[in-house]
Design a protein around this nucleic acid. Sequence first.
DNA 1: CAGTGGTCTAGACCACATA
DNA 2: ATGTGGTCTAGACCACTGT
Lengths: 242, 242
Amino acid sequence: MDPLVFPRSAAAAPYLRIKQHLRDELGRGRWRPGQAMPSDAELVAQFGVSRMTVTRALNELRAEGLIERVQGVGTFAAHLGRVAAQLQIRDLHEEIVARGHAHRAVVHLAQREKASEALADRLGLASGAPVFHTLIVHLENGVPLQCEDRYVNPAAAPNYLDHDFTQITPTQVLLQEAPLREARYSIEAALPTAQEAKLLGIARGEPCLIVVRRTAGAMGPITLARLVHPGTRYLLQGEFKP
Amino acid sequence: MDPLVFPRSAAAAPYLRIKQHLRDELGRGRWRPGQAMPSDAELVAQFGVSRMTVTRALNELRAEGLIERVQGVGTFAAHLGRVAAQLQIRDLHEEIVARGHAHRAVVHLAQREKASEALADRLGLASGAPVFHTLIVHLENGVPLQCEDRYVNPAAAPNYLDHDFTQITPTQVLLQEAPLREARYSIEAALPTAQEAKLLGIARGEPCLIVVRRTAGAMGPITLARLVHPGTRYLLQGEFKP
DNA sequence: CAGTGGTCTAGACCACATA
DNA sequence: ATGTGGTCTAGACCACTGT
């Protein structure tokens, strides 16, 4: 996040020095969560910079969740009651290729259907309206890794079914055709359905990590996907660094 | 030069208007990923604001991952190849209370032990060094929701075992005693161990969502926790909004 | 009222990339 | 040489909170 540039002399940019100083003191426990920290004016005096520079440092620290600022009151050390982390859900093709492995997709279904009532509701369609449906199994070095059951709003991506999904993943198609505005997902552990177990080549009793993702663009819902991964073959990882 | 008046009572802040405008255009697909967007100077002219204001809007959009800026080159629409989302792992107590339910913790273990070699390695200790170990089951309205098996580095939180874990969660204790600098976690689906199944009151064949979290502070590793949740009772949710 | 943060200006100098 | 973004200044007015 911080560009490692050294603008004037050999010293770091003033706003970076301020950030680092406050980060250090916070890490050292200099201020307890909720406790008042130096005001803008005090930091201006202490570091001999203009207020805009102090403001920038403090705003970035706030964006990182380390401090809280309240207008008319002051700046405070954040109470890190909740640990938030950046969770990346990368395109599976990229992920597999990044590991140096071979990715293959088997398309079991790619057709137009009429939306059930429940599905129409979640995709913002009328019940019985046409909807695109794909069912694809992704393999890493020949081993089934994900069963991707996806419904797509035809209004968001009219040409969705024209693609060869053995060559390009639905995720990539949709990112190109329909700009993303919002995504919601849930992650759970459950047993696969009979069909999913068969497609993945696993026993029905084997736990799976299931990600359900729903995305929307400027024009409404885009897609609803159920991604089923064999528990023994897949792991989501994340990291949190202030 | 004319006297300046800012009609801010009726209109949103200029930097917000610029952000929103660019967000809208990006969402509309105005620029393809990687394509050049207006330069700082063009936006200054277009919106009739000073450059600092444009800079702020663009820097925040970059922090949100929507655009990329390259010194000496220009500003570009980001290629959203990866969908990143903020995943919150809240303290379980807070989460349950927020749902208006009752939280109860049953402490099955809270003691000092000697670290095994594997554990010592992950906590930055010498093999056989003392380590704190707690095993706690958390219940929501009397139903077991999480089995928390946790090891703590005594150097990071010397008084860890002095707390009454039926009254305060280990997470809260550690957030108070040891400032957090970094957290890594993994999420997977698997079957519980025999002990975990018994503690959670579930069948051994029931899938569980397992979060393994490792945190570190300024002075090194703090804790290693294995959080096991019955798949039918727990769901991780997240959201991504540019 | 005084003190706080929120925002903005109209310049300026710099580092970097490209031609 | 030109145009780009990166950073900074020395002010200013505003909105808000507390006494």
